[in-house]
Design a protein around this nucleic acid. Structure first.
Lengths: 164, 164
DNA sequence: CGGCGATAGATGCAAATGCATCTAATTAGG
DNA sequence: CCTAATTAGATGCATTTGCATCTATCGCCG
């Protein structure tokens, strides 16, 4: 027998996902219970964060939906809430009459920064002691590779200018 | 890649978490939309899975709660639903009059196995092509290390004095 | 023993979520 | 051009979720 495989590829992949998933749950649980998220739920912060990272400042609702683990309708209403609270602004997409563009308001940007600072500090306290810098870099590399390999971009011609 | 930009430890940790989180979202999104989860929501499957992995077969409700990203009350009702569907059975904990023990019913075990098979296949199709076996092992190692470093067993006595 | 704070779960209720569906705008095809 | 098929978002409605609170039990200490 040429190959020693104590573990099948299928089983290995399952184990990898299991471990990744549990780690995410464990970290997220700690983060959620921290003081940073008393003012705003994690999902809503995530939207503010994604908008803050958008180079143009404006983002389409459906592109936002790729980054969040929410159904389209839930995201629609979540954004509605954020708008009602004055944290984001909407405008009809110039090139597509169906679309909606979003950006942070000044208030939204400020709140994101404020929460973001606390959030980043909490993360550092959790992840920093757990992994060496080299391990963190490797973990980043592996998760990035995994992610990019999943969604090789829906490859629309116009999609080139989305985000960097 | 010259190490030209000296990244702060805080920023590195944030980047690591960001990447881990996005990867998890991306994978979970694909898995959820797969055919395996038409019969049962992911959260509910996760409970069945955790129970199936329990060596004794019985698990306390509060221990279950550590594995799932749900509030205590939501888990309570989720289990209530599962019981109503005949997938899990409850019994009062023998040593602790407050506690509840859970185990899979035969039907629950069968459903878990059925979904589990599809689920594992889906995972393999997503993760397998994305990372080499060595990379998968390394990712497993890093996420395990991260997780174990976070929750080094919330010793009951120590846990009380953390909250204030 | 008896009281007191802490822990395990359950429950009322308001808010969030998802599914199915609807409308409007874009694109494809004759 | 005009019509069918597709896509972006919004909305009605039932289910699920979380927060606050409640009950019951456990553990501790005098």
């Amino acid at each position: 027998m040429a190959g020693k495989s104590p573990e099948s590829p299928v089983r290995l992949a399952a184990e990898t996902w299991e471990s990744l998933f549990r780690a995410q749950v464990a970290v997220m649980r700690k983060l959620q219970s921290g003081p940073a998220f008393r003012k705003i739920p994690v999902n809503e912060y995530d939207v503010l964060f994604t908008l803050s990272r958008c180079p143009t400042g404006w983002l389409r609702l459906n592109e936002l939906n790729d980054n969040v683990l929410l159904s389209q309708s839930s995201l629609s209403r979540l954004v509605e809430r954020l708008e009602k609270r004055g944290l984001v602004a909407r405008m009809p997409a110039p090139e597509d009459g169906r679309g909606v563009l979003l950006q942070l308001t000044d208030e939204g940007r400020e709140l994101q920064k404020e929460i973001g600072r606390e959030h980043v500090r909490d993360i550092a306290e959790l992840v920093g002691p757990a992994l060496t810098p080299a391990e963190q870099k490797e973990l980043t590399r592996l998760t990035s590779k995994l992610r990019s390999s999943l969604g090789p971009r829906p490859a629309r011609e116009e999609a080139a200018r989305q985000q960097a």
